[in-house]
């Protein structure tokens, strides 16, 4: 029976490790292939006229297929940003900056890291990440077809 002497250490430890195989699908497959060539491809629905990053096969609003591919510019505008100062399990060591950036020619914003930012003074660094600020896309030296092949820089 549980009693007043129950302590926080009175636990059974366990883990839940389940492996998954996620089908990439055609749209994401093309997006990742294009990253290897340093291109960022968005999908567009001719019905709604909306271009999407991250790309998807269908327009959530018109509920029609996205039937066009559009190449995004390698510059864009910050829509929202934060600098993470706390350490979370399984996430990068802080500090780091992330931002939703709407790339030129595309209607929606895509999240990625903002690199090369001096974050010794977080308040001052946030001053450089205000919505509306223009940023550039920078690719890694050897893109492998992963979303982390690129990031944003001021």
């Amino acid at each position: 029976m549980a009693n007043d002497e129950t302590k926080a250490s009175d636990v059974i430890s366990g883990e839940w490790n389940v492996r998954y195989n996620y089908s990439v699908g055609k749209v994401a497959g093309k997006f990742f292939d294009a990253l290897k060539e340093r291109k960022i491809l968005a999908t567009k629905s001719s019905k709604s006229g909306i271009s999407y990053l991250p790309p998807r096969a269908y327009c959530e609003r018109s509920f029609e297929a996205c039937d066009e591919w559009v190449e995004a510019g390698h510059e864009g505008v910050i829509e929202a940003a934060t600098i993470v100062s706390a350490a979370f399990e399984h996430l990068p060591p802080p500090p780091y900056a992330i931002a939703y950036v709407r790339l030129d020619g595309i209607d929606t914003a895509m999240i990625n890291f903002v690199r090369g930012l001096d974050m010794s003074d977080v308040g001052a660094a946030m001053g450089k990440l205000k919505p509306g600020t223009r940023v550039k896309v920078e690719f890694v030296d050897k893109p492998e077809g992963k979303v982390t092949d690129f990031h944003y820089v001021l």
Binding site: Y22, P54, A86, L91, P92, Y96, I98, A99, I111, V147
Partner: peptide, 24 residues
């Protein structure tokens, strides 16, 4: 899993991002 998972999104960061926008 393909597009957003890698960028440290969680409930803290996702709302921190919208808060910055709110402040702006």
């Amino acid at each position: 899993r393909f597009y957003e998972f890698d960028f440290a999104l969680n409930t803290v960061t996702m709302t921190a991002l919208s808060s910055q926008r709110q402040m702006s």
